[in-house]
Design a protein around this nucleic acid. Structure first.
Lengths: 229, 229
DNA sequence: CGTAGGGTTGAGGTTAATCAAGTATGGTGG
DNA sequence: CCACCATACTTGATTAACCTCAACCCTACG
């Protein structure tokens, strides 16, 4: 834990374009934490005294069953925040968080941050937007897991990811996974074996071409047609 | 849509104990809507111009698959709000909402409400608490659906409900469903048939006694032991 | 008394998890 | 640079939970 260049905070949606005074206030209460790869940030049930913004690296937020099966809730990347909700709800983290790479995380302690919000509605609005995004994601995840089969979940995920990265969806386009297939399987609510078989099936149908972490779209129409509602 | 007695708003967690001025401001922008039983409040994809607080009755918020299977996200009761997130995120409702009974709903239109928040951090904090509760619920739902079997989901649900209603968990205690078994099945991410069989199994094991909508706990230890983490 | 909505039961099918056994792949130290 | 190891990933066989379909029951209510 140490001081840090404010640049990392300035890029996050939560704090972008704030007035210099607001920003200074935030920088004053924030602290930088470095985590190496595969390190636990917090565990479900731990006392929650603050939330995090990812400055560099990626963090896996996930639930765990007694038998050890995990369900990834979200892969948090640079600029995104996690565990914001614990500031308002309950005193413990409702899920586990673990780094996937070496990470730089900005830590915002609960108390000072609430005081800050109480004075400044602009920050409050950003916070609400961030919470809303999380909520939307979780609702989509419930929908996916409960109402769609693994193949649809996978195709949907690729489609969403390509959109959010600005990759045009057309034959020949390449989507590159930024996490291991095992992690993606868990994010999709399935196991590596089923995930692998699903990719294989799509490949055999000539819709995609998989090489390592690269997925090349061969038949965009055939692949994404199932998503039409 | 009409004017209404402010009493309905005063009881909701969102607006309880606000200063008279704050409260007057909210009452000014709110409006009362009456819905009869089984009426749609909004559908997924509809333009979202505001959110709701339940004054009387219950509302089912749910997702729907193409094949018509539904997943209930939450049963919203008096004092609770829904669709708050749409104020900040996106311009459309991300799920369906339908009344289960005759309902009185307080409608809060987006624009005026945001202006209100911008002036008043106290309301903002309430709003965040409400969003956080929703987020927690959805995370728990993902956990349930993805990581637990139907029996565990059911037992967990009953346990949570009894706790939140203040019914002491012990042999002989009675829990009464406030929705039909079909709706509860959907809330648990399953179908009526499986739900029925699960109840039957627990009954045959001597853990509960089901009569209509009443569930009597016969063996609290045996029933809830599976929840120990 | 008849109907409709809610609920139950049985038989059968299907998806996806589990178990077990491999095959790449990439980084590390010799 | 290569051998080695760990981790990631794949493949096949089996199993199990749960869904689907179809029929039926029950009871509240007009």
């Amino acid at each position: 834990m140490s001081s840090f260049p404010a640049e990392t905070l300035r890029k996050t949606p939560l704090f972008a374009n704030l007035s210099p005074e607001d920003f200074a206030r935030i920088a004053r209460i924030a602290s930088l934490k470095r985590h190496s790869k595969k390190e636990s940030v917090f565990r479900e049930g731990d006392r929650a005294d603050g939330f995090y913004v990812v400055a560099a690296g990626t963090v896996k937020v996930f639930k765990l069953s007694e038998e050890g099966k995990e369900q990834v809730l979200h892969i948090v990347g640079p600029g995104q925040s996690f565990a914001e909700a614990t500031i308002f709800e309950g005193g413990v983290y409702p899920a586990h968080a673990e780094t996937l790479d070496d990470c730089e995380l900005v830590y915002l302690p609960k108390r000072p941050f609430i005081e800050l919000i109480e004075k400044d509605p602009r920050i409050a609005l950003r916070m609400m937007a961030s919470l809303s995004r999380w909520l939307k994601r979780m609702i989509d995840l419930v929908d996916s897991i409960s109402l769609r089969d693994v193949e649809t979940r996978l195709v949907r995920f690729v489609s969403e990811e390509m959109k959010s990265r600005g990759i045009p969806i057309r034959d020949g386009a390449v989507y590159e996974l930024d996490v291991t297939k095992n992690v993606l399987a868990s994010r999709l609510g399935t196991v590596p074996e089923t995930f692998s078989r699903t990719l294989k099936k799509l490949q055999e149908e000539g819709k995609i071409r998989v090489k390592g972490r690269q997925i090349r779209i061969l038949d965009a129409d055939g692949l994404f047609s199932m998503l039409e509602s």
